[in-house]
Design a protein around this nucleic acid. Structure first.
Lengths: 211, 211
DNA sequence: GGCGCAACCTACTCATGAGTATAGGAGAGA
DNA sequence: TCTCTCCTATACTCATGAGTAGGTTGCGCC
């Protein structure tokens, strides 16, 4: 696609696209470093100086790539929320009865929540954001909640799960999975997917002895 | 027990015990005001000046009753943890099979978590505390976790619940109930106990259609 | 060569909030 | 009356951390 095809000595001269890609990579790296720290120490307890230092750069560089501290956080939670929304869309478009689609969503939801950006959604309270930011954040979270409720309602409607209170079930299921963002050890033996699957099995079957 | 028995005109002169009780009441009021604000805005985002202002007093008065900001938080979470421990103790000492005792614990656990001090336990991350404080906090929470696991293991052992993975079930149940600290509206129609009971019923029965 | 621009840094400003020094008033006892 | 001990407030200090000003370097383009 360019002159670097045949005897390509890696050139230190960047094309326009390479530059743009590099910029995007750096932005990405800042976000990743920030979300790790936010999750580990909390938003307020993390200074942008610390984030910068962990990347070997200085604070103004962060401001160069992302407007301000809140912007950094908003980008992080937006990533997480997008993944959750994608999971909901896929589940809704999926095959199978209501329970199958709900189960698919819950497994994906759980796995996302154990990702850095997903965990950030859970760990970030409205109080971290400005008034406008909090409104946006709440509304995005509400979309996920409503998607969850929709899937539950569908499953109730087609009889593939018991006729539960949709709202209460939504919060209870979300909470059970959300909490994994707190206790799961990324260095542990089980993958996020495996844990989520086990949790979902438990939530579907319940504690009661199986027939 | 004193001279205030018969024709008691309420005296403005305090006895030694009354003084002590008043001091305790004031301490209590500070704690209650603080925990509300911590829950609403987060620990780091709450200043002791704000807490003091909400009581119509000044910051040094808070320092007079409680050593420093961390001490205030520690007292708050300790209250919550004590309530949870009491619930575990009662459940363990209770009658009935394993499921009955586990169910009792979970209902109490859920109700405590929706209380101001209980919610504080959930909303407080280790990052808010000093190194020593965090160690103490973690170990107290671990006690609760272990109590929960013990009750689950007992119920598995006597066959009153299915043979679940004890650790995973413990975290999943705790998460489902903990999350209520975030979404429940204290002004809502349902009591904390009613919500907890409904959640526990759901967790025991599971989503699967009932036979 | 000179201009413009992107990227990055050093070195600030400035607000906030934890914690303290200090003083003053009020009841209790000598 | 004098003093001691609580209780409480005013008015600080001081560290931290968000955000900014302004300079420097190096590349691409006329």
């Amino acid at each position: 696609m360019s002159a670097k095809s045949a005897v390509a000595i890696p050139s230190p001269f960047r094309t326009r696209e390479e530059k743009a890609r590099e910029r995007e990579e750096k932005r990405e790296a800042v976000l990743r470093a920030a979300v790790r720290m936010f999750n580990a120490r909390g938003f307020h307890a993390t200074s942008l100086d610390d984030v910068a230092a962990s990347l070997g750069i200085s604070k103004p560089t962060i401001y160069h790539y992302l407007g301000n501290k809140e912007q950094v956080l908003i980008e992080c939670v937006t990533r997480g929320l997008e993944m959750l929304r994608a999971a909901a869309d896929e589940a809704r478009a999926g095959e199978g009865n209501g329970l199958a689609r709900l189960g698919y969503f819950l497994r994906r939801y759980g796995a996302v929540i154990m990702d850095d950006f997903g965990a950030c959604v859970v760990r970030t309270g409205d109080e971290c954001l400005s008034a406008e930011g909090a409104i946006l954040f709440r509304s995005r979270k509400r979309d996920i909640d409503l998607a969850m409720r929709g899937l539950i309602a569908d499953a109730v409607a087609d009889g593939s799960i018991a006729p539960v209170d949709v709202k209460l079930a939504g919060f209870t299921l979300a909470g059970a999975l959300n909490w994994a963002a707190r206790w799961r050890d990324p260095a542990g033996a089980l993958s996020a997917e495996a844990i989520a699957a086990a949790q979902v099995d438990l939530l579907i079957a319940g504690l009661a002895p199986r027939g």
